[in-house]
Design a protein around this nucleic acid. Structure first.
Lengths: 116, 116
DNA sequence: ATATCTGGCATCCTTTAGGTAACTGGTATA
DNA sequence: TATACCAGTTACCTAAAGGATGCCAGATAT
């Protein structure tokens, strides 16, 4: 009667990976912000306008978190007043397929809910 | 000079789909719970043991939310004491590729962090 | 007889996420 | 001269998420 169940260990491992991902992209705003930036909105106000309903404060703190996790790059240009530009990092590109899957599921889900 | 920018509208639409998805699966626990159940943990305590660190209270409320969103099915059998069984719905299966992408990214990310 | 398992519920508490509103300094525009 | 834009910051607040602890009743295992 074996004590070690490799299946359970593998499942636990998968769950941990999932939790690692969630730790980085969790919350209402992070992924929407990434999409907005990725699609060409590099300025603070442009991002805010793209992501419906977000406030300056929340956007500001989320951008800092994303920068810390190296998903977003912030560049300040020495103009007057300073111009600030946000872009997604190349590391952020590794999230692409995941995000596309999430968008696809959301679309599908929305259609399904409407049908009810 | 056109006022309507179809690109911006399309981006906004994608972001909305993403937000729909997040509305359903957001939070620290929902996806890990789904994986645990999907991998064959049908009993309350089994799920709890699979998802490291979750309390009975949180698990209980999350399961209710997942049931409401039709991702999980709860069945009670008339044994004594009653046996309760949780399974993922067929609708939940539509989340599979998305979740696998998230697991894969988490694994990758974890490896990357360790290297630093 | 005692301990432990099951599937939770109730209560209380802390933490975090998120929201509101006001404000800043510098610039450009009307 | 007044207004608006930019990129935020600060202080305050609420709501939701999450955590700790204790409990229940029926059953099974020691």
């Amino acid at each position: 009667m074996p004590d070690i169940q490799p299946d359970k260990a593998a499942v636990a491992q998968q769950i941990r990976h999932l939790q690692d991902t969630l730790y980085v992209v969790n919350g209402k705003w992070k992924l929407p912000i990434l999409v907005a930036i990725h699609q060409g909105n590099s300025r603070f106000r442009d991002i805010q306008r793209s992501v419906q309903g977000i406030t300056t404060k929340v956007l500001s703190t989320e951008l800092k978190a994303l920068e810390q996790n190296k998903l977003v790059v912030r560049r300040v240009y020495d103009t007057s007043p300073p111009t600030v530009e946000y872009t997604t990092s190349s590391y952020c590109d590794t999230l692409q397929t995941m995000i596309l899957e999430m968008i696809a599921w959301g679309k599908n889900h929305h259609d399904r809910i409407r049908e009810e």
